[in-house]
Amino acid sequence: MTAAQADLPELPAEFLEMPEGLRIDRPDVADGAALWRLARDSKTLDLNSSYSYLLWCRDFAGTSVVARDADGRPVGFVTGYLRPEAPQTLLVWQVTVDPAHRGRGLAGALLDGLTAQVARQHPLTTLETTITPGNTASERLFASYATRHGARVEREVLFAADRFPDGPHEPEVLHRIGPLSR
């Protein structure tokens, strides 16, 4: 068990160790650069500054998870936070898995592990995320999550394309999943 895992006694054992030597863990500041690289290499996520990933690993580690390979290197992550004005809602900001580890259900396991972890410390009724139109992989991931958790999915445009000041950007569609039952 890593030091970070020792900080997560509430994470169910089935999420700590996974097939092929992968494990779910809490991110720490030392993971920030790797998360930035995973986001950059995904070719689908909006890439934030490297500084933001360092801050995320420091300030939002309790509402985020990483998947580590047998050598402890991050090979996937989910970043999220509890909405300040809706503290029973976990907003998932980014999800990615290294291409070499895709197609094995790791992203779904990360989402399940994260919500189990957060729900042990905070009442959690809803998960939210935004997805751009045409991102079929993310739509399937979150629809599958909703099914596993016995929840409905409601969709609405959260940010229209014209809200983004930095050039062309597709709208961000809010997917609200809830109520979570398991």
Results as ranks from 00 to 15, higher is better:
residue 168 P to Q: 06
residue 43 K to V: 04
residue 49 S to V: 02
residue 116 A to Y: 01
residue 23 R to H: 08
residue 102 R to Q: 15
residue 26 R to K: 15
residue 88 Q to H: 13
residue 119 A to V: 01
residue 58 R to H: 15
residue 110 L to C: 04
residue 11 L to A: 01
residue 46 D to I: 13
residue 66 V to K: 00
residue 131 I to V: 15
residue 10 E to A: 02
residue 5 Q to G: 05
residue 80 G to D: 06
residue 104 R to W: 09
residue 46 D to E: 14
residue 26 R to G: 02
residue 116 A to K: 00
residue 153 V to N: 13
residue 128 E to W: 05
residue 65 V to G: 01
residue 45 L to H: 06
residue 151 A to G: 06
residue 21 G to E: 09
residue 172 E to M: 12
residue 39 A to Q: 10
residue 71 D to E: 15
residue 11 L to S: 00
residue 133 P to F: 00
residue 145 Y to Q: 04
residue 44 T to I: 13
residue 82 L to A: 10
residue 38 L to S: 03
residue 4 A to K: 11
residue 81 Y to L: 14
residue 56 W to H: 07
residue 43 K to N: 08
residue 60 F to H: 15
residue 108 G to F: 01
residue 69 D to A: 07
residue 158 L to W: 12
residue 112 D to L: 01
residue 148 R to G: 08
residue 134 G to L: 04
residue 139 E to M: 11
residue 50 S to V: 09
residue 4 A to R: 14
residue 15 F to R: 00
residue 33 A to I: 07
residue 28 D to E: 13
residue 32 G to N: 04
residue 14 E to G: 08
residue 16 L to Y: 05
residue 2 T to Y: 07
residue 13 A to Y: 02
residue 23 R to L: 07
residue 127 L to Q: 05
residue 90 L to M: 13
residue 140 R to P: 06
residue 6 A to M: 10
residue 4 A to T: 15
residue 165 P to H: 10
residue 93 W to D: 02
residue 77 F to Q: 05
residue 126 T to Y: 12
residue 123 P to F: 04
residue 97 V to G: 06
residue 42 S to K: 08
residue 47 L to S: 04
residue 12 P to R: 04
residue 12 P to K: 03
residue 170 E to I: 07
residue 106 L to N: 02
residue 2 T to G: 02
residue 5 Q to S: 11
residue 1 M to H: 12
residue 30 A to W: 09
residue 130 T to A: 05
residue 112 D to K: 01
residue 157 V to L: 07
residue 34 A to T: 15
residue 75 V to H: 11
residue 45 L to S: 09
residue 75 V to R: 13
residue 95 V to N: 00
residue 123 P to N: 05
residue 120 R to G: 06
residue 19 P to V: 00
residue 116 A to V: 00
residue 178 G to E: 10
residue 84 P to C: 08
residue 64 S to D: 05
residue 162 D to Y: 12
residue 100 A to H: 11
residue 104 R to A: 14
residue 75 V to W: 10
residue 56 W to C: 10
residue 54 L to Q: 14
residue 144 S to M: 03
residue 181 S to H: 13
residue 74 P to R: 03
residue 44 T to N: 07
residue 129 T to W: 06
residue 182 R to H: 13
residue 43 K to R: 14
residue 162 D to A: 12
residue 153 V to F: 09
residue 94 Q to K: 10
residue 66 V to I: 15
residue 46 D to A: 10
residue 89 T to C: 14
residue 117 Q to C: 09
residue 135 N to R: 10
residue 17 E to W: 06
residue 81 Y to V: 06
residue 109 A to P: 00
residue 101 H to L: 10
residue 182 R to K: 11
residue 15 F to V: 00
residue 37 R to G: 00
residue 22 L to W: 07
residue 29 V to E: 15
residue 152 R to C: 08
residue 79 T to W: 02
residue 46 D to M: 13
residue 11 L to P: 00
residue 44 T to P: 00
residue 74 P to Y: 05
residue 166 D to C: 04
residue 23 R to W: 09
residue 33 A to C: 08
residue 61 A to R: 13
residue 95 V to E: 01
residue 163 R to G: 09
residue 115 T to W: 04
residue 22 L to Q: 06
residue 158 L to K: 13
residue 120 R to I: 02
residue 35 L to W: 01
residue 122 H to Y: 08
